[in-house]
C-alpha cells in the first residue's frame, strides 16, 4: 500500500493545502490518490477538471496531475470536451455540491444523460463554503445557513437519485467516514465505461460545523451514526445506487465517424 509520504511526493502539490484543519477536502484528495495508484493508472493519463469553490481546490492546484480549473459550475462541460478530444484520458471532475448540483446542475444532468465516460466526485458539504456558507441545493430543510438564518424554507434534493434517473452508468454515495469504501468506489468509477458519479459527504468544520457547534470529528461521527449500507434503513443510504451498462457518448461518436468513413 502506498504511504502518506509517497502520496505526498507523487500526487500532492503545494502542501500543506489551505484547507481548514479537519476539512474533508484533504480526505477526498487522499482517497483519489490511493484509488488512482491502486487502479494502476499512469497519472500522466489523468486530467482533473474543477470549477469554483473549496472542493475545486482539491485537484487544482493540489493534485499533481494535469488540471483544468474552470468557471463556476462548468467542470462537467469542460471535462466532456477533454474526453471527446482524447478518449484515452482518464477524466476526473472534482466539484462541490454548490458547483456541481447548484450552478452546474444542468451540465450534470446532461453529462449523465449522455453517459459520457467521466468520473465525477461531488464533494458535498451542504452549503457554499468558500463564499461564507450560503444555502445550496443540498442544504437540508430547516437548516440554518448564512442566507437562511431562520432555517432553509426549501428542501434539499437527492443528487445521487437525480443523476441515476438521468442515466448515469454508475452512481454511489459515501462519506469521509467511509474512507476504505470511498477508495474502492473511485477505483470502480475509473473502471466504469460511462458516467460515474460519486457523492461524498465531506465535513466543513468552518462554515457548517461552527454554525452547528460541531467539530470536524463530530461531523465524521454524525456520518457514522446517521448513514447505513442497508437500503431499507431509515438512515441515509451509503453505497452503490446503480452500476449498469449503457451506450457511452464518445464511443458512439467515434463509431459514427468510422461508419461515415472519417478518421
Amino acid at each position: 500500500m502506498i504511504t502518506a509520504e509517497e502520496i505526498r511526493e507523487k500526487y500532492v502539490r503545494n502542501h500543506p493545502s489551505p484547507f481548514c484543519p479537519g476539512c474533508g477536502g484533504g480526505m477526498v484528495l487522499n482517497a483519489m490518490s490511493r484509488a488512482v495508484e491502486s487502479a494502476g493508472i499512469d497519472k500522466k493519463d489523468v486530467v482533473a477538471v474543477s470549477g469554483i469553490g473549496c472542493a475545486a481546490w482539491i485537484p487544482s492546484p493540489h493534485w499533481r496531475v494535469d488540471t483544468l480549473h474552470t468557471t463556476h459550475g462548468r467542470a462537467v462541460a469542460f471535462a466532456s470536451g477533454v474526453k471527446i478530444a482524447d478518449r484515452d484520458l482518464e477524466v476526473m471532475v472534482v466539484s462541490g455540491d454548490g458547483d456541481c448540483a447548484g450552478i452546474g446542475g444542468n451540465h450534470l444532468l446532461h453529462g449523465a444523460r449522455n453517459n459520457i465516460d467521466l468520473n465525477v466526485i461531488m464533494v458535498n458539504n451542504g452549503l457554499y463554503a468558500m463564499t461564507g456558507g450560503q444555502v445550496a441545493p443540498t442544504t437540508e430543510h430547516d437548516e440554518k445557513t448564512l442566507t437562511t438564518p431562520y432555517g432553509n424554507p426549501a428542501s434539499s434534493f437527492e443528487v445521487a437519485e437525480v443523476v441515476k434517473a438521468a442515466g448515469a452508468s454508475h452512481v454511489a454515495r459515501w462519506t469521509t467516514y467511509h474512507m476504505k469504501e470511498l477508495v474502492k468506489e473511485v477505483e470502480k468509477a475509473v473502471d466504469t465505461k460511462g458516467f460515474s458519479f460519486i457523492e461524498v459527504l465531506a465535513q466543513c468544520p468552518t462554515r457548517k460545523g461552527k454554525k452547528e457547534g460541531m467539530t470536524g470529528i463530530e461531523m465524521l461521527e454524525w456520518y457514522k451514526e446517521n448513514t447505513s449500507k442497508d437500503q431499507d434503513s431509515e438512515k441515509m443510504y451509503v453505497g452503490t445506487f446503480c452500476d449498469v451498462e449503457r451506450p457511452e457518448l464518445t464511443e458512439e461518436i467515434y463509431r459514427q465517424i468510422e461508419r461515415l468513413g472519417g478518421e
Binding site: T3, A4, I7, H15, G26, M27, N30, M179, K180, V183
Partner: peptide, 16 residues
C-alpha cells in the same frame, strides 16, 4: 492497520 494514515486529511502521519 494504517487507519490514521488513511484518515489524515494532510498526509502528516504514516505507518511503515
Amino acid at each position: 492497520c494504517r487507519r490514521c494514515e488513511l484518515y489524515c486529511p494532510d498526509f502528516a502521519i504514516e505507518v511503515k
